[in-house]
Design a protein around this nucleic acid. Structure first.
Lengths: 225, 225
DNA sequence: GAAAAGAATTAGACTGGGCTAAATTTATAA
DNA sequence: TTATAAATTTAGCCCAGTCTAATTCTTTTC
């Protein structure tokens, strides 16, 4: 059996590997896990002993074929929990992350499968990230067009929002933007401010272009609900 | 903050104190927690330092006024989770304990309150043990009349079953007995065998008298559903 | 291609929770 | 009342996961 901490490392390595598509450097992992580098080195050794990661000293670390499904299992738990918390327990978009981060290590697969069933086997979590199936298949994350790729006057549907920044999620949520919300782009300034008009909202919402570029959005016609 | 292990100790002390109504001996606690005695002594010291228990060396331990609400919080989590698992996630009577035992330490009070709300603030868990309220009030456990206190021909409703023995729970469940089931007592032998006819079951169910004496049951008229 | 800078690792210590073996206290029995 | 048995605690060790300080390997830069 693995400790919750070990599972967290595997999950982190999975995420970082997804981003960089290369071996994960221990410094990056240390930063992500919020620990010092030697802690990473020693943990990586333990994971390597169990054949969950491959460690090339001084070069970085990557998940083995044994490690990947374990990471996916945790990610499945996490994203299902997030979906369950928002859909069934009235949690807000911004509140789910911490709760799911704790519980993901402690629910059984049976629990995960049951809530998946209750939710109708959802494909994505509340932020739009794909949920691995019970067989641990995972579809590629949506990272096609972003809010910044569209033009004034376009109407788009919010597909995916980065889940790391709770303040951002709270801000969006407070201004009527969720996954699936239709928004019209009403202004794009030369100094990097994007203004949106979310369907059903009282007021327009302004976002820095940097943020807009991190939010996936599809034109309405291409992806009918 | 307390570790999950510390919370488990507090919960254990609460249960044992409830049973014996006296200071809990470290040997009893060691037995219950399935660890050796010195482990208990050292943990008890840590809990005493935090003023969660009062430890009289060589005499035993008891919860302080600081420790009691923490134990009750955990017990609330545990029993709400059990109820949630059976009522909303189709878990069987016998399966809930382990899952709840892990999750109780990791759900937030918010989570507990939300599922309590969804369940309609239930008073008891699936075994009939009382669930503390959000204010941590707990009603006295039902331990009045047992199956062994009634006579052949009496019809009673199952109120409460000890939750420690998963095999027993599975057996009862397989034979159509749950909390709230109405059963008629059809035979009581001189050699300590009690036979019941559960409402809606195909066959009668036999139980040793020792077990029957651990199951609370009220006459139908006294406690209408 | 050597020296400085940066990244990663090793060494060694600390905390939490557990264990065994030894010492001590309390309870029992002669 | 003293001797023995039983319960408890102390002493000292182990493992997991973290840390700081020191070392070693890589990379960059002149």
């Amino acid at each position: 059996m693995l400790s919750a901490i070990m599972e967290d490392y595997l999950k982190a390595i999975y995420y970082l590997q997804e981003e960089t598509d290369d071996r994960v450097r221990t410094s990056v992992l240390a930063e992500y896990m919020d620990v010092e580098q030697p802690s990473v080195t020693s943990m990586v050794k333990k994971l390597a002993e169990r054949d969950l990661v491959h460690h090339e000293p001084y070069k970085g670390v990557e998940l083995t074929d044994t490690g990947i499904p374990i990471a996916l299992e945790i990610i499945r738990h996490h994203r299902l929990l997030e979906r369950y918390l928002t859909d069934h327990l009235e949690y807000g978009w911004a509140e789910v992350h911490d709760e799911a981060d704790r519980l993901e290590h402690h629910i059984s697969n049976q629990f995960a499968d049951r809530i998946a069933e209750q939710l109708g086997d959802p494909a994505v979590d509340p932020h739009g990230d794909p949920i691995p199936t019970a067989e641990l298949d995972i579809s590629a994350p949506k990272c096609g067009e972003t809010l910044a790729d569209h033009h004034v006057g376009d109407s788009v549907r919010i597909e995916r929002v980065p889940d790391e920044d709770a303040d951002l999620l709270r801000y969006l949520s407070d201004h009527g933007i969720h996954r699936g919300t239709e928004v019209e782009i009403v202004e794009v300034t030369s100094f990097g401010m994007v203004t949106l008009d979310p369907d059903g909202a009282d007021e327009p919402v302004a976002l820095p272009e940097k943020i807009a570029r991190s939010i996936s959005a599809q034109p309405l016609s291409e992806n009918p609900s």
